[in-house]
Design a protein around this nucleic acid. Structure first.
Lengths: 137, 137
DNA sequence: GTTACTGCAAAGCTTTTGCATCCCT
DNA sequence: AGGGATGCAAAAGCTTTGCAGTAAC
């Protein structure tokens, strides 16, 4: 059994060919794809694939912790199969997103937490990616 | 002349009663309102106010640096008149957003920048606000 | 056999745009 | 006076939903 299938099962959801294709598309994907990116990719293998199935599956995966929804793009949701804590570099010109795995522990002082019970954190670094920086001149 | 009016002029945009109302609504506003929040608020004083005017004005203000657009809410854009670098606490249940002004310098090691030219950063802390934490039990 | 997923289409929301009119400078 | 903003409505883009048929368990 493929590793992807195995991991899928551990999520405790019904396994379908479409869902398997979506998970394989996400597997190790560092491009932070949008739902449409995933749809287009999976469409190559499943010409009858529905957009609704992509959204439904992503929502289920998100609930089960199989994918992380990122709000880093003003225009659309982005998805990240890497659900371990990490941060992101975002190109403000072309919207490219790159992972930043940092050991730096991000903590907030107790007196600034305003009574919140903090469960996670995320750092975003904005700037220009190498390609867009080159075009700038 | 009111301080708000004065600051508005320094942005170099045409001053209208509607725009003034929007800026006054934003002035010192710590609630990180959505466009609709602002629309509803301004509607009280300008019953003929158009949604398009709110969006147009927010876009102009954003370009001129008079307001910051936040992508911290999956459902809608949020706006923040505080354009000085600061971070946010976000309640994942009710979407309440609270400012975090921290002196902690947020920097990324050169070797993790992936060639990006970094122009800014933003930290998000997720969790439950006091009210939602109380309901949790 | 049941449960629940798929696919299609339509609807829902937020945000944008076109255009005629009006108003600030 | 002229350029730009307003207001209205319609459109656009992303995402969700209802439903009948179908596949996974």
């Amino acid at each position: 059994m493929k590793a992807t299938t195995e991991r899928y099962r551990t999520l405790g959801i019904k396994l379908t060919p479409q869902r398997l294709a979506i998970l394989e598309c996400l597997d190790g994907n560092k491009s932070h794809p949008s739902a449409e990116d995933i749809y287009k990719e999976v469409l190559k293998r499943f010409p009858t694939m529905s957009f609704a199935t992509v959204y439904n599956t992503l929502e289920v995966l998100r609930e089960k912790g199989g994918v992380q929804a990122l709000t880093i793009d003003p225009d659309r949701m982005r998805y990240d199969p890497d659900t371990m804590g990490h941060h992101h570099l975002i190109c403000q010109r072309c919207r490219k997103v790159v992972d930043v795995h940092s050991d730096v522990k991000v903590d907030i002082p107790e007196d600034m937490a305003h009574g919140f019970e903090i469960t996670g954190s995320h750092m975003e670094f904005y700037g220009l990616c190498p390609k867009c920086k080159a075009k700038e001149d």
